[in-house]
């Protein structure tokens, strides 16, 4: 079936089988491999993307269900000015070890900050509770998301 998905601001029209999963569509048809496949069973969150602004597990959404939707993948986080604040905070705070869960963690973090500009540690841990880090590097992931929130708040206060 014919679908058009807006991924990171660009329209991608394709002919897909109904059973094509959104994550496979993003990785194989569109060629954006920043979205990972981890457990493939709706547990780990490595495949997290933002669909119409909300984080979802792309291994558990049909590509056809994203027809007409706005999808943001980790590749879409960067801005014209460079890295998204969540990306630079993960770099500065060592918010990753192996990096496999990182795209999902950053998208969930970016989504959280957009809704809650000053998240507590509890807020962050609650938000990322659907995403697993097998390196167990949660301390710095939480720290990085809070750093990013503080930087975003600071820059919006300053402007």
């Amino acid at each position: 079936m014919e679908i058009t998905v807006t991924i990171n601001g660009s329209d991608h029209a394709s002919d897909v089988e109904p059973r094509t999963l959104l994550v496979d569509h993003i990785r194989r048809t569109v060629g954006l491999t920043g979205t990972h496949v981890g457990c493939d069973t709706t547990s780990c969150g490595a495949c997290t993307v933002l669909m119409d602004g909300k984080p979802v597990k792309a291994c558990t959404v049909l590509a056809a269900q994203a027809d007409g939707a706005e999808v943001t993948t980790v590749e879409g986080l960067k801005t014209a000015d460079g890295l998204h604040p969540i990306q630079s905070a993960f770099t500065d705070d060592h918010g990753l070890q192996c990096g496999f869960c990182t795209p999902g963690m950053m998208l969930v973090g970016a989504s959280l900050i957009s809704e809650n500009p000053d998240p507590s540690e509890d807020d962050v841990r609650w938000a990322i509770s659907g995403n697993l880090c097998r390196c167990t590097g949660y301390m710095n992931i939480v720290k990085a998301i809070q750093t990013a929130a503080a930087r975003v708040a600071e820059s919006s206060n300053g402007s």
């Binding site: 969150g45 558990t60 959404v61 609650w126 659907g130 995403n131």
Partner: peptide
Amino acid sequence: VADPLVRNR
């Protein structure tokens, strides 16, 4: 119910 991402969907 489930986790935050599953709850979004």
